[in-house]
Simulated assay, not measured.
Amino acid sequence: MTYVARKLDTYSKLKKLGEVARFDVCGFPSVFTGKNRKFQRFKFIYPAVGKRGSCVRLFKVLQSNACEGNCFYCANRKDRNFQRINFRPDELAKLFLQYYSKGLVDGLFLSSAINRSVDLSEERMFETVQLLRTRYGYRGYIHYKVLPGTDESIIDAAARLADRLSLNLEAPSAKHLAELSPSKNYASDLVGGLEKIARINRQKPLKAGITTQLVVGAARETDREILNLSGRLYEDYKLWRVYYSAFMPILDTPLEELPPCSPLREYRLYQADFLLRRYGFTPQELPFEKNGNLPQDCDPKLVWALRHQDKFPMEINKADFHELLRVPGIGIISARRIVETRKQEKFTRLDQLRKTGALTTRAGNFLTLQGRFYGGGERKATGQINEQLFLWEEL
């Protein structure tokens, strides 16, 4: 059956182009989206987390869903039967400002399908952002999605207006990308584009840095392959974040029969990613199973500790900051507080440790306090989702 197009008003466009923008990730992993029901009134407003855990409401929308690409998993693929919609730059800029002026959103996340050509699509997105900055005087947050194959001069111009630039790598290698989007060149279109953004960022750092996104569970990739790539991206390109998007099959696409990726797998990837970015772990230290994936029944930091029991119990009054970060139940903030508290007094009781914010029910099994062990419980994995590493302190 062929889709019969009808003319849409601006708000109807927004509902459709905002809903399909959900595939660009910018905030909470899908396992936690149920906790943010207050945002479901508007499908184009997405919760992210700002400084000190504050909620940032992003107006997330596509400039166009009409695409020349034919990615096997994508709702906007060229051969799929659906209504193509476009926003004019001034139309979209004014629409965003309506919601911003009413205090309903805090920033803009702008992306687009490749409508006719990369240059034309980038031109329309850039004009939208330029209008906001120059004609309408908007000074708030803008996340600008760079399309594969974009010329470096356009990226440079966008970097002068946006707070963050991103480009989706989609897969951890060219081999895996071929299973998702065989028409794209992994080296030149994707990695090459990210290199351009990184080069510009080194010359004039973006306020909110660079991010990318990977599709999880659609190309037979392993968690090891994904996180090895993430480690290189953080090291070589100084990325702010790598986002992971659990694959969901879309009707009328070549991958519609593929089973969806478990949201828990996506969540474990985020936990492991946090260990790479903030806890001093290397990809080689992450506790992968023989199949190359992370265990799903337990958070990766606890699994690592259980596999390195020769390092525990650790004496809390002697361990340095980086050693404390390896203790399950102790996070970055509590580790800092422990180090500061030790300048005044030694830890001899669990209630002292509890005041630092550490999870004593977990940490107590891996520590001694002035030589005394307070654990006694089993050190074992648990199927319960642990939010210890759910620390979305930035967008």
Results as ranks from 00 to 15, higher is better:
Lys196Trp: 00
Thr10Asn: 02
Lys196Phe: 13
Ser230Gln: 01
Arg37Cys: 01
Val327Ser: 03
Phe274Asp: 13
Ala93Arg: 07
Pro313Tyr: 05
Glu221Gln: 05
Thr150Leu: 06
Ser245Val: 10
Glu122Pro: 02
Glu285Tyr: 03
Asn76Phe: 13
Leu161Phe: 07
Ala208Gly: 00
Lys238Met: 14
Arg202Ser: 08
Lys38Thr: 15
Ile85Gln: 12
Ala178Gly: 06
Thr2Tyr: 12
Leu255Val: 05
Ile333Leu: 11
Lys184Gly: 00
Leu359His: 12
Gly192Gln: 05
Asp163Cys: 06
Ile154Asp: 07
Tyr99His: 13
Tyr99Phe: 07
Asn86Ile: 12
Leu206Lys: 11
Gly383His: 08
Lys175Asp: 14
Phe274Gln: 10
Glu19Gly: 06
Ser262Ile: 09
Glu387Thr: 13
Gly34Ala: 11
Glu221Ser: 10
Thr356Tyr: 10
Val191Ala: 07
Met125Cys: 12
Tyr243Ser: 02
Phe28His: 00
Val49Asn: 12
Gln130Leu: 14
Ile197Lys: 04
Cys74His: 01
Leu395Asn: 05
Leu147Cys: 04
Ala66His: 01
Ser188Gln: 13
Tyr186Thr: 10
Phe366Pro: 05
Leu14Gln: 06
Asn86Ser: 12
Glu91Ser: 01
Ile85Asp: 04
Glu68His: 12
Ile385Val: 14
Asn228Lys: 00
Gly34Tyr: 05
Tyr100His: 03
Ile333Phe: 04
Leu391Arg: 02
Phe28Asp: 11
Glu393Met: 15
Gln344Gly: 10
Pro295Gln: 03
Tyr237Ala: 09
Ala187Cys: 09
Asp156Gly: 06
Met125Thr: 07
Leu120Ser: 13
Tyr234Glu: 13
Asp189Asn: 04
Pro29Asp: 14
Asp252Val: 09
Ile142Gln: 03
Asn201Glu: 08
Glu170Met: 02
Asp90His: 01
Asp163Ala: 02
Tyr279Trp: 08
Ala178Thr: 14
Asn386Ile: 11
Arg124Cys: 06
Phe59Asp: 00
Leu190Arg: 08
Glu195Met: 04
Ile45Thr: 02
